[in-house]
Computed example of a mutant assay.
Amino acid sequence: MRSIFYLLCLLFIVLSCQEEAAITFSEETFTTSQNKIVEINIPIAEGRDAVKNNINKSIEEVISASLRLDKELEAKNKSISESIDMFNSEYASFKSEFPDSAIEWEAQIDGEIMYQTDAVISVAITSYLNTGGAHGSLVITFLNFDALTGQSLENEQLFNDFNAFKTLAKDYFNDHIADKKELYFEPDNFILPSNIGFNDSGIILLYNSYEVAPYSTGLTEFTIPFDAIMPYLNYM
């Protein structure tokens, strides 16, 4: 009887630890009293402080960088609210300098959880900014996290054999653009994209505009299924 009691206590402790370690997400909309042209909807990590703080800090840094028009300025220490006000202030300065301009600035930023397991979390941040010019700027950023620590993972850390992964990715890239190679800058000179992440089907690779093709070509993305990529993965 005593043994059963101890086993139940042990099971309770294990389940409690697992529950404590689990990270969940809620969606939050950010704005400020001065905001008129920025809309931000992103996932916010909840759970153990150390883990959620690491994840939320990385997401916040991407948002702040997206709203920073002067890339020479440091934005790492700015909150999302401060970055929104800074963007609005830039627009106010623009309107003051060019009062007859009909251009209306806007910024739309959305985040989503692409993939989550007990080992890894992949987040996509989609930023669309229009500050004049021929067209707006659409940029997608993937973030990968160690689910146990919340630490950001570099692309190389996702794989146990990065060169083998690159060779496999090249084959999938060539298949993807086989009937439209003329739309790409250097289709025979393969490079990996900045964005590599997980989705429910496998590893997704995404090239933003101008990485491998002009704006008119749009985004380039393809997925390597899990059954093909599994031998090279450090995380699942």
Score class of each variant (00 low, 15 high):
A169T: 07
L69K: 05
R2F: 07
Y235K: 06
N130D: 06
N195E: 09
E39T: 14
N88V: 01
S201W: 00
I121V: 09
I121L: 08
N35D: 11
Y91H: 15
P99T: 02
A75L: 02
Y184S: 06
I80R: 08
Y232Q: 02
Y91T: 03
A228H: 11
W105A: 06
T126R: 13
I224A: 00
D70I: 13
I140E: 15
Q18M: 11
C17R: 13
M114E: 14
N53F: 05
D100W: 09
F145G: 08
G150S: 04
V139K: 05
E154F: 04
D188L: 04
D146P: 10
A21S: 10
L10Y: 09
G111V: 02
F165I: 14
S79K: 09
L143N: 07
H135P: 04
R2T: 07
D49M: 09
E211D: 08
S89F: 10
T24V: 11
S122H: 05
D227G: 06
L183S: 12
I204P: 01
T29D: 13
P43F: 00
K52D: 09
K166F: 00
E46A: 08
F30H: 02
I140C: 06
D188T: 13
M114D: 13
F30M: 05
S137M: 11
Q18N: 10
S26C: 02
S16E: 02
Y91K: 14
I109S: 04
E90V: 05
I13N: 11
D118R: 13
E104K: 15
T31E: 00
N163K: 11
D227M: 00
N56H: 08
